[in-house]
Design a protein around this nucleic acid. Sequence first.
DNA 1: ATGAAAGCGCTAACAG
DNA 2: CTGTTAGCGCTTTCAT
Lengths: 368, 368
Amino acid sequence: MSKPRAPDINPPRLVSPRLVSARPVTAHDVARLAGVSQSAVSRCFTPGASIAAETRRRVEEAAARLGYRPNLIARSLITRRSTIVGVAVAYLENPFYPAVLEALSNALEGAGYRVLLFTARPGENADPILEEVLRYRVDALVLASASLSSHFAEECRQAGVPVVLLNRRTESGGVSTVTGDNRAGAGTVARFLAAGGHRRCAFIAGLESASTSREREAGFSGALAALGLPPAAREVGHYDFTAALEATRRLLALPLPPDAIFCANDHMALAAINVARAEFGLEMGQALSVVGFDDAGPAAWPLFGLTSYAQPVRPMAERVVAILRRHLEEPEAEAVQEVVPGALMVRASARLPAEGVMEQGGRRIWRG
Amino acid sequence: MSKPRAPDINPPRLVSPRLVSARPVTAHDVARLAGVSQSAVSRCFTPGASIAAETRRRVEEAAARLGYRPNLIARSLITRRSTIVGVAVAYLENPFYPAVLEALSNALEGAGYRVLLFTARPGENADPILEEVLRYRVDALVLASASLSSHFAEECRQAGVPVVLLNRRTESGGVSTVTGDNRAGAGTVARFLAAGGHRRCAFIAGLESASTSREREAGFSGALAALGLPPAAREVGHYDFTAALEATRRLLALPLPPDAIFCANDHMALAAINVARAEFGLEMGQALSVVGFDDAGPAAWPLFGLTSYAQPVRPMAERVVAILRRHLEEPEAEAVQEVVPGALMVRASARLPAEGVMEQGGRRIWRG
DNA sequence: ATGAAAGCGCTAACAG
DNA sequence: CTGTTAGCGCTTTCAT
């Protein structure tokens, strides 16, 4: 059948002829062209709505012809859901966090959410910027490696915006958290080093305000004590590469330097290897062992071969998304504190114990 | 004066007593409490609006009391500006891009924009996801290290959404770009290597579809030819660490291996150093010189000391924002192709020429 | 299954 | 300077 000429597609408004589309196409325009009501157009783009096949066809054709794109901003105004999640991340220079961000972004996109990103400056108070995020009516907030003032936690609770911390814990109630197994992981590292015959362990702490650093230190010290080993020498690297370089220098310049250094994260452990090799000429796994935490990308580079307690980034991101969804479905749901187990990836930066090293999927891990 | 009792703050609706705020506070609520019109509240939160000091005071007090937060989604519906910019970024495992993202995010936040993030999978076509972004009515789009189908470029043009490519160029018209000086930078590298006495240069290309890799290769080859040096041996590393490891292995296993390798980016250059040192036992700057492009974080690590042509991340991000603003202010403005100059950062990974190395702000650069 | 009508929370003329 | 009024583009009852 020959179709009748389409009615006026764009009602000739006061549109300057040069401007291709002064006013973006709306559902009304589509409705007019398709000869249906605007509600019908809406239904056509709403997953569960009931609409006749023929109507749908006509709407879709008209929409395609006009290049219609539903305005999600308008939709969210009425649905009161933006399908946007605010994500704050700091320390992007630490190679672990780009990986976290990527995993998180993928997981959220997979769940139908968009990411509104905030790069929090480590030292700064993130509150003002988070305050701003809330104005965009994000459905939820994910803070990676950032903490949260208890005041702001309360604001979010009142606003009904669920918050999930990734890789940080907090005392603020009502906030869910997903972390690696910092205590157990650090304990494993201690036992691994002990089994490898190390006797003078040192620890380089990250930010002393960060739960990760504190938990890893507690786990490490506790295990050393349980093993009857002397307490670890201690320096602070603030999760910063340069600070970690210096912390390592201080440790290695000690009258009786350590035979092993456990760093609260890989970024600092890589710094430690840099100093030990480039400045002290120490061979990793011989004169000195270095172990990190995270299993960040460069840990696997040939020149580093850093033994590290891996935090499984993708599973952690998936847990974040799962928790978030539950909070959105059941607003009254209790906050949870999830711990995702990891594994000690064994490479060449630390002397190996005689036993316990095993292959697993092409990688070597250690189970004390 | 004692103030009269405030009128009913929250009109006792059908609010379950447990829910702290079933319905978020709106400008109407604030207006009622402050005893003004809702428009007055709006004005109070609109920068340039005219409002009496006393009115403002009352509104602000009421707003604070109720914990009012203007709904930016609703605002953008009517202003037709979301103050959100879509940012697509790929290759987050390449340490250069977290830095780019951070700079971009900071620059955009500084200009009052929020970042809606998309992590484009390198291989995949980004169109569907970008299509989705447009539905959020982003004011503009920034693509870092990602290209754009000409079809999608056209869609953006029609939708009136300016697009700026960062670190990529495109043939698609109407798209602005900001890049480092790939040709000149690569030429500088060639002259630097020649001045250092290297005679058998090799080149490891990135993605052959990427303008960066092509331009750097052209600049390098052109300069070598101009210097009367033989053409560089060539391998492809696809901007991928593992692929670059293999490319380096092939080069170093050649009967007459190169005495210098220029890699199309630092990420690959770091891989090259890893292989050269860990597998071939070559001392950097002695038996082999390696030069990269970007000056990404790890280039400065003591163990690498990678000589690299720096791309100034912050200035580039600022140019992107400046261009974006101009496009938003003058929709008819022509697309521009900006090139931001860089500098060759001299470190220990490549043998030094006798002349031309100079200190500059604590860093060593080379000017042929 | 479809259309009419009523808003979501806000800004922007327009009078006063 | 302030209140009134009319929407922004969409979803969602509610009739039909």
